[in-house]
Design a protein around this nucleic acid. Sequence first.
DNA 1: CGCGGGTA
DNA 2: TACCCGCGG
Length: 338
Amino acid sequence: MGTDIGDLLQKRKVEFSDLANRVIAIDAFNTLHQFLSIIRQRDGSPLVDSGGRVTSHLSGLLYRTASLFEAGIKPLFVFDGKPPDLKSDTLNRRNEIRESAREKWVNSQAEGDLESAFKYAQASSKVNREIVEDSKYLLEIMGIPFVQAPSEGEAQAAHMVLKKDANCVASQDYDSFLFGAPIVIRNLAVTGKRKLPGKNVYVDVEPEIIELDETLNALGIDREQLIDIAICVGTDYNKGLEKVGPKTALKLIKKHGNIHAVLREKGIEIEAVDKIREFFIHPEVTDDYEIKWGKPDSEKLIEFLCDNHDFSVDRVEKAAERLKAASGARQKTLDQWF
DNA sequence: CGCGGGTA
DNA sequence: TACCCGCGG
């Protein structure tokens, strides 16, 4: 997913408390995908209501967002719009991988291989239209704002940080840097436990902050060169050069200056390379959004989560109380400023 | 993932 | 009080 330039970036650990009063533009697709793949039973099946509808994303969204809000963080979610045509190969490939994972999940289950079953169950997660609509409605009745991007959510989130409508982007992917996001936060979660891919082992993962300028200075390159490095390694819009990882790509771009010189030197071509660069530099974004944090609607939360989706009334009431208390506290700090 | 009841 | 671990939906 995205581009594999993580090794080149300057990462700093950050405390949850350091993020108080920060507006964080959260990549909704990235977050929902993670909830869907991780919030599962030990046999790999997701949380579902009595009608068989998946609810893992609702659980993750409710409790994590309540915690972020309670910590004084001002979260807003940015949803993907129509993917660019450049992305169709990647999306088709993801579909195939997902379909084959779904088959392997069934097979592993039949063979009683629980570890594989869980792994393939995770890989078969899909953020579909219903998941997105459910999530938007939940955010609405929680009093948490969201923005609909015209195209890539990470591009929209980066745009909002550049406009100073948000302080940083939160995503596990690095694409928002290519779209110009000055600051990105990774591992924005309450408990820092994360499962190692493939293994049944959990490690502590703390939130970390990456600043674009700091990284560019350290590497001695500019943003367009970082984009060129990503194109060498591979992005959602192109395949990348054979046997070129982030370190090699950095060397190549520093030596030759830009992607065109590298391709000329190697005597190879990348389809639509100029279009890809242009998409990262000037992505389709919108200024048509409103960001406002409100009070949660406890009645609608109970109706939606408990009546419709079988959540525990106790737990939902508690989460609603946390949101309410935090929105009250929020108002006080705002009053102090004005 | 995050919750919360159980445990030392 | 801090951590563990099974469950939630």
